[in-house]
Amino acid sequence: MIAFLGMGLLGANFVKALLKKGAQVQVWNRTAAKASALEAAGAKAFSEVADAVKGANFVHLTLKDDQTVDEVLAAAAPGLKPGAIIIDHTTTSADGAVQRTQAWKERGFTYLHAPVFMGPQNALESTGYMLISGNQEVIKAVEPALAQMTGKVINFGDTTGKAAGMKLLGNSFLVGLTASLSDTLSLAKALDIPASDISALFEVWNPGAGIPARLQRFIGGNFSQPSWELSMARKDTRLFIEAAEKGGTHLAILPAIAEEMDKWIAKGHGNDDWMVIGKDSL
C-alpha cells in the first residue's frame, strides 16, 4: 500500500502513473477536492491525513516547503504504520532534509529525501530524474520502487541532505537561465527582432552544449588565456543595455552582471577571460 500526500500537478500525476502500474494508492490534499478527483482513476481519497497513511508501507510527499512538510508529517504521525518509509519529493532546504532524517529515525521511521527534476508530464510518464543521498542501506532497499517512478535515479552518496543541495543547485541554474531568456527577449523586442527569429537561431546554435566546458574552466580557475576578454564582454554588455534603454524595454539581470564586470575590470582583470567574474565562487 502506498500513501501520497500533496495532490498538486506533480503529485497527482505521480499517483496516476502508480495506479496504471497496478499500485494501491491512498491520497490526501489540504484542498480535499484535488484528492477526491483521483478516485475516478482508482485512488482512495481521505479528508484526514492520518487516515490516508494508515496501512501504507511507503508514504510519499509532494508539498510546498519545509514548513508544510513538517506540519503535514506531524498531522500524519498518529496514523503511520510501524516501519513505514517516508519519501519526500518536496524541494526543501538541505538543513531541513538532514533534520527530518534524524528526527524521524529517532521516532522509529525512515525518512528519505528524494527531490526531482521532473515536471507533471514526467511524473505521468515516469521519466525525468530523481535525486537521492544518505544511508546507502536504506537507498538500496527503496531504489527499485523509486526507479519505477522516474527515468533515472541519481545517487549522490552517503551524505544526508546532499540530494536537497543538488536540487537547489539545479533550480538556481534554471532560475538564472529563465531570467537570461527574459533579457534576451526584451533585447530582441528593443531591436525589433521577432521571437521566432530567436527560436530559429537556437535551433541552429546551441549555447547549452558549451556548459560542461565552461564549468571545467571555472573549476580550473585559469582565466589568463581568454577566449573572450572581459573588457570586450563588458563592451558588448554596454551595447545590450543601451539598446534596451533606447527601445524602452526592461532587463532583469544584465545590469547586475555589468556591475560585476566593472568590479573585476577595476581589479585589473580586463584582459582576462570574462569568466573571471565567477572566480570568487570557487
Score class of each variant (00 low, 15 high):
residue 130 M to W: 09
residue 192 D to S: 14
residue 65 D to K: 02
residue 15 V to W: 05
residue 67 Q to V: 08
residue 166 M to H: 10
residue 155 N to W: 08
residue 106 E to V: 06
residue 211 I to W: 05
residue 261 M to S: 13
residue 134 G to K: 09
residue 200 A to N: 09
residue 134 G to P: 02
residue 268 G to N: 05
residue 222 N to Y: 07
residue 167 K to R: 06
residue 30 R to C: 15
residue 147 A to N: 07
residue 159 T to G: 13
residue 214 R to F: 14
residue 141 A to Q: 08
residue 149 M to A: 08
residue 133 S to Q: 04
residue 173 F to L: 05
residue 273 D to Q: 01
residue 209 A to S: 12
residue 279 K to N: 09
residue 246 K to S: 12
residue 112 L to P: 00
residue 259 E to N: 12
residue 263 K to N: 10
residue 244 A to W: 10
residue 40 A to R: 07
residue 147 A to V: 14
residue 243 A to F: 08
residue 119 G to V: 14
residue 103 A to M: 02
residue 140 K to E: 15
residue 280 D to A: 03
residue 231 S to I: 12
residue 163 A to I: 06
residue 184 T to D: 02
residue 112 L to E: 03
residue 224 S to R: 02
residue 77 A to L: 14
residue 180 S to P: 13
residue 70 D to K: 00
residue 267 K to L: 06
residue 183 D to E: 06
residue 154 I to K: 05
residue 201 L to Q: 10
residue 136 Q to L: 02
residue 81 K to A: 08
residue 84 A to S: 10
residue 16 K to H: 01
residue 32 A to K: 10
residue 91 T to H: 06
residue 183 D to R: 08
residue 252 A to M: 11
residue 175 V to I: 15
residue 52 A to V: 03
residue 253 I to S: 15
residue 180 S to Y: 14
residue 153 V to I: 03
residue 269 H to M: 03
residue 72 V to G: 11
residue 23 A to T: 08
residue 203 E to C: 12
residue 154 I to S: 02
residue 180 S to V: 12
residue 275 M to W: 00
residue 107 R to F: 12
residue 9 L to S: 11
residue 183 D to Q: 10
residue 252 A to F: 12
residue 184 T to V: 04
residue 164 A to L: 14
residue 202 F to P: 08
residue 260 E to G: 07
residue 87 I to L: 01
residue 45 A to P: 11
residue 14 F to G: 13
residue 71 E to R: 04
residue 203 E to S: 14
residue 100 R to V: 01
residue 165 G to H: 03
residue 211 I to R: 00
residue 274 W to R: 00
residue 198 I to R: 08
residue 76 A to P: 12
residue 245 E to W: 15
residue 34 K to W: 07
residue 202 F to T: 03
residue 130 M to E: 10
residue 276 V to A: 04
residue 117 F to A: 05
residue 207 P to H: 01
residue 181 L to Y: 13
residue 38 L to Q: 12
residue 104 W to D: 01
residue 144 P to C: 07
residue 146 L to T: 02
residue 7 M to I: 14
residue 136 Q to C: 04
